[in-house]
Design a protein around this nucleic acid. Structure first.
Lengths: 185, 185
DNA sequence: GTCTATAATTTGATAGAC
DNA sequence: GTCTATCAAATTATAGAC
């Protein structure tokens, strides 16, 4: 028994993202594929199959592949920042990366994009760059006011977390992540 | 004026690799492409164009795409180990990564493959795994005989170098690598 | 919004002449 | 070993009916 709706079904917005349900499902599928195979490793048809529609319907929501990937990266950055908005220590950061790796078995989306950023569409590499600029700024604040020292600490931690994730996945051994990131500065 | 040859021209071997000249040129092109765009980011036709032949000629030297990528990764590992055979400190390791990044503007081949290792052909991901296993072993020896401590040091340094490379490339700023990897343990 | 149909291109791979 | 020619499949993307 459905209750009366304040909005027609198709235009309902999720409380957090303001993105239509179907577009959200498409982005979910695309995010999973990109985090597994990279930007060049997914197709509109795969995404369509994942969601249960045809590829032309995916194009209706996202006109081009770069546009879809950029939207996914932007949402990823938003969620990442929300998850770490209240982070008090580098251990909170470590926990977010660990969770993605161990529970979801996934890489950092922007780590994957960054690795192949050599010839990514401009709008996609721009989102990857934005992710790291913002993350480094937030991470640096854990080490005091902006300075050469706090910046270096942020760079070291970010490099470590991203590198450890890639190593753990390649070696198919989560303990690699635990070992590499134990006792971060 | 050519001197007499001991081998027909086509089967001359390079002194270091024992790989025919043409196959070597194909691997050079493939390596450059993979380190820029990843495994899913290159095609036989692009490689053929780079080398100045047709794609069917590439297939003559390497029957399939996974076979070509695996051969490239194997040769990369060999060269990497040769370059670091006499390494006395972690600074030597850092120098090799820096050179690739700054002088050649390229990522670590196996770092790129590792990032998209989620659905790589088995023979390709196996080579990426082999690269890191062997590298970690060699790197650990800088920190004394095999132990939990030397293993952890190797993991930390490797994660840092790979992560710093990816960060520097994504942000298009070599100083990111310098900062992140200054004063490695 | 989703579908069918299709265009235009690219992909990995093979057959066979030279 | 390299070429031409070709294949079957997949790719991104668009037009238009419902």
């Amino acid at each position: 028994m459905e209750r009366k709706r304040f909005f027609p079904k198709n235009t309902m917005r999720s409380a957090t993202t303001e993105i239509p349900e179907k577009a959200s499902a498409i982005m979910d599928a695309a995010e999973r594929r990109i985090r597994t195979s990279g930007y060049n490793g997914f197709s509109f048809r795969e995404i369509a199959t994942d969601v249960g529609v045809k590829s032309s319907s995916v194009h209706h929501h996202f006109p081009t592949k770069p546009a879809l990937a950029a939207a996914v990266a932007r949402r990823y950055t938003d969620r990442f920042e929300a998850a770490l908005a209240k982070a008090k220590s580098v251990e909170d950061w470590r926990a977010v990366f660990r969770k993605a790796l161990v529970e979801d078995g996934q890489m950092c989306l922007c780590g994957v994009l960054g690795a192949e950023s050599g010839d990514l569409p401009a709008e996609v590499s721009a989102e990857a760059r934005r992710f790291f600029r913002r993350s480094l700024k937030a991470l640096g604040q854990l080490y005091g006011p902006p300075s050469a020292v706090s910046r270096q600490s942020a760079l070291r931690v970010m490099a470590m977390l991203e590198g450890a994730m890639m190593l753990a996945r390649t070696l198919d051994d989560p303990s690699v992540f635990e070992e590499a990131t134990r006792n971060l500065p």
